[in-house]
Amino acid sequence: MFMGEYCMNGKLFAQAITKVISGLLLVGFLLFLPAGSFLYWNGWLLIAVLFVPMIVVGFVMMKKNPELLRKRLNVKEEQSEQKTVIVLSGVMFLAAFIVAGLNFRFGWIVLQKWIVYAATAVFLLGYILYAEVLRENAYLSRTVEVQENQKVIDTGLYGIVRHPMYMSTFLLFFSMPLVLGSVISFVIMLVYIPIIAKRIRNEEQVLEEGLAGYSDYKKKVKYKVIPYVW
């Protein structure tokens, strides 16, 4: 049993490391190739604040809750509507990263450094919220589904908004282009609002149909993502 668990964790570790390395290479390619230079310091800043916390959180999950890490690594959506969301999100990030690199190369709009640093602080705050959501909700898969024996979580951040994970992604995704020094990329990332609205609409439908108590939870917690706003 011990050897079996060790092998499973070893495979999970290898899968996680592969994801990180491939993600690092992809982000670097999308940023530095359009920038035409490795001197694009905003790109290095984003890579640092994106991947260092990611690795730390990954190691914590590996130690404390490997099953949650396994769920987070699974990106195969069963819902056709969610597959569309994944594609649209990918196009959004692709465009935002490429434009940010081009913005550095051609100097279209140069942000003051204090804006970049403030955005970096917001980005890290988003990561802290992300980590807290992972701590609170052991059912937090990346795919829209109702898991076996899943229960409604209504404490902590889930007592404030129904989708605190998406609240954290708002902070992450809207600060990211400013970390990269690109206002144009920020405008591109605003597309995330209708994209995530589409995802939430489908997700709540799935949860209401398959998760006992979710309808009552919706009545108890009025806001989806942003308190007093949405």
Rank of each mutant, 00 (worst) to 15 (best):
F2Y: 13
M3W: 10
G4D: 15
Y6S: 12
C7R: 10
C7N: 11
G10A: 06
L12G: 10
L12Y: 10
F13S: 11
A14S: 10
Q15M: 08
Q15K: 15
Q15G: 14
K19V: 14
I21C: 10
G23S: 12
L25C: 12
L26D: 05
V27S: 13
V27T: 15
G28F: 04
G28N: 03
L30T: 12
L31C: 06
G36W: 02
G36E: 06
S37M: 05
W41T: 13
L46K: 01
I47D: 01
I47K: 05
V52W: 05
V52R: 08
M54Q: 13
M54T: 14
I55K: 09
V56M: 12
G58M: 12
M61D: 12
N65I: 00
N65Y: 07
N65G: 09
E67C: 01
L69A: 05
R70C: 05
L73Q: 06
L73H: 01
L73F: 00
N74C: 05
Q82L: 08
T84K: 10
V85I: 06
I86Q: 11
M92I: 04
M92E: 13
F93V: 09
A95F: 11
A95E: 01
A96E: 08
A96Q: 02
F97L: 14
A100R: 00
A100Q: 00
L102I: 06
R105T: 05
F106W: 14
L111K: 00
L111C: 00
V116Y: 09
A119T: 09
V122R: 09
V122I: 15
F123W: 08
F123D: 01
Y130H: 14
Y130K: 12
A131W: 12
E132Q: 13
V133W: 01
A138F: 03
A138E: 13
Y139I: 02
S141H: 00
S141M: 03
R142I: 01
R142D: 13
R142P: 11
V144E: 06
Q147C: 00
E148L: 08
N149W: 00
Q150P: 09
Q150N: 05
K151W: 00
V152C: 02
V152Q: 01
T155E: 11
G156M: 03
Y158M: 05
G159A: 04
I160Q: 06
R162V: 01
R162H: 07
R162F: 04
P164H: 08
T169A: 07
F170Y: 14
S175P: 10
S175R: 02
S175Q: 06
M176V: 08
L178Y: 08
L180I: 08
F186R: 00
F186G: 02
V191W: 15
I193W: 10
I196N: 13
K198F: 15
K198I: 10
R199D: 06
E204C: 03
Q205M: 13
Q205H: 15
L207H: 11
E209T: 10
A212F: 07
A212K: 13
G213E: 04
G213N: 04
S215K: 14
Y217V: 04
V221R: 02
K222P: 02
K222H: 07
Y223S: 02
K224C: 03
P227K: 02
V229W: 06
